[in-house]
Design a protein around this nucleic acid. Structure first.
Lengths: 193, 193
DNA sequence: TAAAAAATAATACGATTGTCTTAGAATAGG
DNA sequence: CCTATTCTAAGACAATCGTATTATTTTTTA
């Protein structure tokens, strides 16, 4: 089995991941990925049958990235509440990118719901949201919030998405920090009983 | 001065407005607009020099739409708090579209921050957000919240964007209604003192 | 090391993109 | 009514899109 090939495949996915994030899926062409990797445009067909296949691979890659992030949150704290706080604070580590390009899943999702053809990848994208939602619910369960777990998890995701959208539109780092702070206060208030 | 011409121009803008919302700006071609209006593709150049000019016209149209919406909120209620509630409730009137395509300004804005070339229209888009923000601040001023007006206005916008994003991703009408309800509770709580 | 498989390079394909031109039709004002 | 202007129809334009093919080189396996 070729090991060189899968390395090049990964380079394509990495370049596409970055470009889909910074320019958007539909605004990224094969030529763009070719320029960034040095791999000839026509060669992509060897690894991926269609552009949507590349998208699927990128979404899979982001799934892994977010799983790593959640693992990181689990390692950073032992208690469920502290882990939730770690999750909420994560955008601060990506402040520059967040302010420039928004949320890696939120913005891609917003773009893809408008594509009628890419239904397959759309379901994959909600899978990323579900990954986060399930993890949040897991922490809430440990805090005895199993009843309203689904609602609170969605609320938390909505709050984070909203903060990121506005911070992105106004390129307002201060608002991002304050917004995340407010979410943490809300978390403490909601989960103390 | 020709009156027929400006009518056709308006038809182009209307079709583009709908298509940009339902499919996205970059996923809408001149051919799409041509198909929807029956106006030959090559004819657009008579009214608009570039595609971005059409975008600018669409953004202007949405500015007017949102101004109308704000006027509608002003007519619906006499007090500033009630007017804010009217604004918050507005997405419920567009429930179907919101669930399908998201927010008309939020989603377009998310798409355009990623375009490096369309800076001009990007500033126009923040103008739509500013329109809302200024109106909200205006109501807050009347409620004696002039000090934290900017912060609260951004918070309100963020909350609405977040709710709409999640409701859109999960196509969850119930969450949309509950989320808006929660925003109203938050409004009452924040502005009562 | 020889045969098989995997990977690379380069290019061609039809379709579509946004842009632009031009000839003619409709409509206006004098 | 005639001229000038505004508008419409149709299509050409180069560039780029995603896709596909083929010949060749590299790597793996036996």
């Amino acid at each position: 089995m070729g090991t060189k090939g899968s390395a090049n495949r990964q380079r394509i996915v990495d370049a596409a991941d970055y470009l889909f994030y910074s320019r958007g899926y539909n605004q990224t062409s094969f030529s763009d990925i070719s320029d960034k990797t040095g791999i000839p445009r026509g060669n992509f067909y060897y690894y991926f049958k269609t552009k949507e296949d590349i998208l699927a691979a990128v979404v899979d890659a982001r799934l892994i990235e977010f799983k790593d992030m959640l693992k990181c949150c689990e390692n950073a704290a032992s208690g469920p509440l502290e882990r939730l706080h770690a999750l909420v604070q994560f955008p601060l580590q990506r402040e520059t990118q967040i302010l420039q390009y928004g949320c890696p899943i939120g913005s891609l999702s917003s773009e893809l719901v408008k594509d009628q053809d890419t239904e397959i990848s759309q379901t994959r994208l909600t899978a990323v949201f579900d990954l986060l939602k399930n993890w949040i619910e897991e922490q809430l369960n440990k805090l005895g919030q199993s009843a309203r777990g689904d609602d609170i998890a969605k609320d938390l995701l909505a709050k984070m998405q909203g903060i990121i959208i506005i911070a992105n539109v106004y390129r307002d780092a201060e608002f991002l920090r304050r917004g995340i702070n407010d979410i943490q206060s809300w978390l403490n208030q909601t989960l103390s009983h």
